[in-house]
Amino acid sequence: MEKNISFTLKVWRQRGPKEKGAFKEYKMQDIPTDTSFLEMLDILNEQLVNKGEEPVVFDHDCREGICGMCSLYVNGHPHGPSTGATTCQLYMRKFKDGDVITVEPWRSAGFPVIRDLMVDRGAYDKIMQAGGYVSINTGGVPDGNAIPISKEKADLAMDAASCIGCGACVAACKNGSAMLFVSAKVSQLALLPQGQVEAARRAKAMLAKMDELGFGNCTNTRACEAECPKCISISNIARLNREFISAKFKD
């Protein structure tokens, strides 16, 4: 089960958003295959620090695939070659001795690079602030069981709600479109009676914000769905289209 591998890492290094970046190569020796990809980067950083060089900056936090912080584009795939997993859930046993592993940041106009592999995903917060909520106050709400919701609907809403906001959909999309992210939130809330009330308003507001922030137009290539670590379906995009178009026709 356990063995060690050696490989070459090509890592994108960039000082700041305005500065020019470039790849830097690092030779990694004898890395146990049961270390995670991020632990492998920890090892690299430890080596760099010991040499007095600055460590590679990358976003990470929970390291169990739920916070959505990690965001590496590994060998041409957001979150690496595993499907249905985030970068932090990627283990070195997926790679072979002698491999060249290329690590890049998310590349999209909506997500400018802050440093090295760390990008600014503040745009997602702004889209959420535009309408990704139910406009209610704290308190004064009906009992949890007052409105029955079919299991089917609740499950569909949960499928959409499992989005972790990591940005892999934008990173994977050749159009730099954030439609999967937006549609997941719009769908979750449109499927539930609690969110239905302002569904039309929400779809319009979130989409307008997405467009304003410079994300691209969806052309249904399905790359987002294929790379999404939570396997969110593009049928959510169809639902967003439906919600949006019917809202516009009603205006």
Binding site: N75, E104, R107, S108, A109, G216, N217, T219, T221, A226
Partner: peptide, 27 residues
């Protein structure tokens, strides 16, 4: 618009994920 949204830097390595039609990316 989509090219602009993609940003100024391109990926050095790209791979076509499973389930993506060739046509869809070359319309």
């Amino acid at each position: 618009q989509n090219r602009r949204a993609r940003g100024s830097e391109r990926y050095a390595v790209t791979a076509k994920p499973k389930g993506v039609e060739w046509a869809s990316q070359n319309m």
